[in-house]
């Protein structure tokens, strides 16, 4: 089977994934409020995401970086895996109509889409829970615990929009920092991205 990707691409994508996971561990202890994890992580995760897109450039770059992580986390949590599959697919679906990741604008769009869809899919899924209870998939005892935890969000659905916008903004900061690193790597002769 002919693949558009080379060995170098696969290895680079894997290392960017490692960078994203490492930055989650770095930012984690400093998150001041619940639900803000993704917003706080976006500037750091965005650096590696932008770097991966700048180096790999083709459609499917985001999926190539995130899907192995989704498979790796499958034994730990099928829900996180589902979230990690849906988020890059949403991003790739949007960027598909724009071409590839050669231009800075598309990389910005890809980064913003990734984090915004991350918030909408991740936190938005809480609104599906009552529907699951109605169909009998979820028992009410568990629902009470979830509602208790996410009461703030369920009572204020507009917060989801605010968080999505915040993730988009911090994701843009991540893109901007990522482009700065891309520029530095190009000057050092370590990256051949057509920025």
């Amino acid at each position: 089977m002919n693949s558009p990707w080379s060995l170098r691409d696969y290895v680079f994508a894997a290392f960017m994934t490692i960078g994203m996971v490492a930055s989650i561990f770095l930012v984690g202890p400093f998150v001041p409020l619940p639900f803000l994890d993704l917003v706080m992580w976006a500037p750091f995760g965005g650096i590696f995401l932008t770097l991966g897109m700048a180096r790999l450039q083709r459609r499917g770059s985001v999926a190539l970086m995130i899907l192995p992580l989704a498979v790796l986390l499958l034994p730990l949590s099928p829900l996180i895996t589902l979230y990690l599959v849906l988020t890059p697919l949403a991003t790739e679906a949007v960027v598909f109509f724009r071409g590839n990741y050669r231009s800075k604008a598309n990389r910005l769009l890809g980064t913003v889409m990734f984090f915004v869809s991350g918030v909408l899919i991740g936190l938005g899924s809480i609104f599906i829970v009552p529907a699951l209870v109605n169909t009998g998939e979820f028992i009410e005892e568990d629902l009470a615990k979830i509602i208790e935890k996410f009461a703030v969000l369920l009572n204020n659905p507009w917060l989801l929009g605010v968080l999505a916008v915040a993730a988009g903004i911090t994701g843009s900061i991540g893109w901007w920092l990522g482009e700065k690193v891309v520029h530095q790597l190009q000057r050092a002769g370590k990256l051949d991205a057509n920025a």
Partner: peptide
């Protein structure tokens, strides 16, 4: 102070691992 040195280190690692795999005849396909 943290991210730029880390990224540079990772790019170096990625290059070295690629060369290592290529010299051992590894092909993903």
């Amino acid at each position: 102070g943290l991210m730029v040195p880390l990224v540079f280190q990772m790019v170096v690692y990625a290059d070295e691992v690629t060369v290592g795999l290529q010299t051992r005849g590894y092909s993903p396909t």
